[in-house]
Design a protein around this nucleic acid. Sequence first.
DNA 1: CGCCCAGTTGAGGACACTCAATAGCGGTGG
DNA 2: CCACCGCTATTGAGTGTCCTCAACTGGGCG
Lengths: 235, 235
Amino acid sequence: MHPITLHAIWSSEPKCRHCAVRGSVLFAGLAEADFHHIHQPIRDVNLAPKDLLYRLGEGGRALFTLRCGVIKLVQYLPDGSQRIVRLLKDGDVLGLEALIGQPYQHEAIALTDCEICAIPVEVIERLGRERPGLHRELMARWQQALTEADVWLTQFGTGTARQRVARLLLRLTCVDQDRLPLFCRQDIGAMLGLTTETVSRTIAELRRQGLLRDHGAHIQDCDRETLRRIADGEE
Amino acid sequence: MHPITLHAIWSSEPKCRHCAVRGSVLFAGLAEADFHHIHQPIRDVNLAPKDLLYRLGEGGRALFTLRCGVIKLVQYLPDGSQRIVRLLKDGDVLGLEALIGQPYQHEAIALTDCEICAIPVEVIERLGRERPGLHRELMARWQQALTEADVWLTQFGTGTARQRVARLLLRLTCVDQDRLPLFCRQDIGAMLGLTTETVSRTIAELRRQGLLRDHGAHIQDCDRETLRRIADGEE
DNA sequence: CGCCCAGTTGAGGACACTCAATAGCGGTGG
DNA sequence: CCACCGCTATTGAGTGTCCTCAACTGGGCG
């Protein structure tokens, strides 16, 4: 178990106002005046890779915005193997289930260094009462997660290993053209429903065909055009 | 293309008040007085099996509650094959994406006869402004869809054909112990990411082992205990 | 009666999994 | 500084599962 670094920073350092990703995170639409209504502490959480943000089944009273970093949401199968259900990146929101009183549905585990805001549910509820626009924002977040879930099912749950890997690489590189977070083969397998050996073999072959370069776990210079053809089953 | 039967019934027949599934559908918590605020027509839609409720990419201005019946949400892969992403049953809500101005993300196709309420987005917005509780209800619906999506990914996207079929049968029968809607082998395949032949073979073997009976597409009398062991990979 | 569609069954092959051995990398300690 | 350890990635061989293609069956309906 990894310790979670929590320290209340609200009173001393109102980061929300100056938050680097304010344009894209939950409070994007908040007017300056709205911040005066926040009496509850919004906490600042920092995670290192492999740290646990929250546990599956834990009854949480906060939701989180990811200011920077990458987090994986994991669920487990009866046989103990794990499946990565979604990835979250800068500006994404997680733990929404807390808003309706449900325990967290996943384990949330950091893949990179992460900076996170932990927002108590009561803060959202109070703000929501006075600013209905917040609800629209929240619903959009939910819809975004749902769309993402559907994509994972269709893109990463169907087709050959070659297709799935190609699709994953396309999706990961479309954010940051060449720089994508380093995933171990096991994580890639857990995202695609494949074994680490199959993933390794598949990536090795793509490398031999000159469709990407990789130093260790770092994958670079994907030939997106060819990968797209592979993803669509054209070769 | 299947014609959609739409007829406005609000003025003549205010079904929402007497809706059979009012206890579990969207307007569960609405006080009687709230209905006076609805000036927009809530339409009644009836579908036969294979009828299309809405199309993927269609920009809709209504969301739907399913009073009775079963509906499948379908997405398509680049190669044209279809994947069933979720099933909806009595009391479920669909088309939520319309609420945030997005086009529908799936094809919604009836599997049985269906009775549906089509609720204009404006109605929800007006009601939501006056009754914040509605937002909570909507968020719960979204979360429910999300949880369901995760289940499909982990349960139906992993494991052997035998395990997946067992899991599907368990999930379908847990609602209605012995009576489950009739799915063709192709639909089952589209839910599990398997071919119809594999589904057919797998079910045939379960039948030979006495774990279920089926007359044509109707499956009955599942041995849920044994199926559970199969689903968990214990045999 | 015969068509049509859905389901079943068979044969063969491709693909991914399992088990196992090896290689490569980074960190630690002597 | 180098040897060693542990972990991850890679590669190989063999097997099992599922897909593909194809033929056949059976029920529903015109």
